[in-house]
């Protein structure tokens, strides 16, 4: 993702982790139905939402993401029985932790999208883009070094 000037400097950057079976297919369904979304997100596919390690989410923020979306199958529908329950618990705890780091929990969203819910996928993405646009960039890399005197 790029903050190229021809696309405006204040372009939100969102990373969306989608599981192969439901949410990735849901994103495909949104595309197939030609539902238009804002383009400021990049999908990274994993087999199940439970593969996503919270440290990678931390890294995403550190490396410039304005927001991170984790999308899995609806509870009870995980292709691997119950991976999404693990995801749910981790993300809840991570959101609480992020608040201590001064990162608004709204920047990290976990939601469920089934393979047929193209419209739901589009809505979640649009909502997230809108929410982080209000919050603005995190600019973490520089302030880490800031020395106030």
């Amino acid at each position: 993702m790029n903050n190229d000037d021809n696309y405006g400097n204040n372009v939100p950057q969102i990373v969306a982790f989608c599981c192969n079976w439901c949410s990735y297919a849901g994103a495909d369904a949104a595309g197939t139905s030609r539902l238009q979304t804002k383009p400021h997100f990049r999908i990274i596919r994993t087999m199940c939402s439970s593969r996503v390690e919270p440290d990678l989410i931390m890294e995403a923020f550190r490396k410039g993401a304005w927001g991170v979306l984790i999308l899995g199958c609806h509870p009870g529908d995980c292709h691997y029985k119950n991976g999404n329950y693990k995801t749910d618990r981790r993300i809840r705890l991570l959101r609480k932790t992020l608040a201590q780091f001064g990162i608004e929990p709204e920047r990290l969203r976990l939601d469920w999208v089934s393979a047929s819910e193209g419209a739901r996928f589009t809505r979640i993405v649009d909502e997230t883009i809108e929410a982080v646009q209000k919050l603005g960039p995190l600019n973490l890399a520089v302030p880490c070094e800031v020395i106030h005197e």
Binding site: N2, G31, K38, R42
Partner: peptide, 24 residues
């Protein structure tokens, strides 16, 4: 996936779609 994730859902943003296709 530059069709379902790019050309189809972003034809309202053709410039950005190319950028995104490159990124993907």
């Amino acid at each position: 996936n530059i069709r379902e994730q790019c050309s189809w859902p972003h034809f309202d943003y053709p410039d950005y779609a190319t950028l995104k296709a490159k990124d993907l």
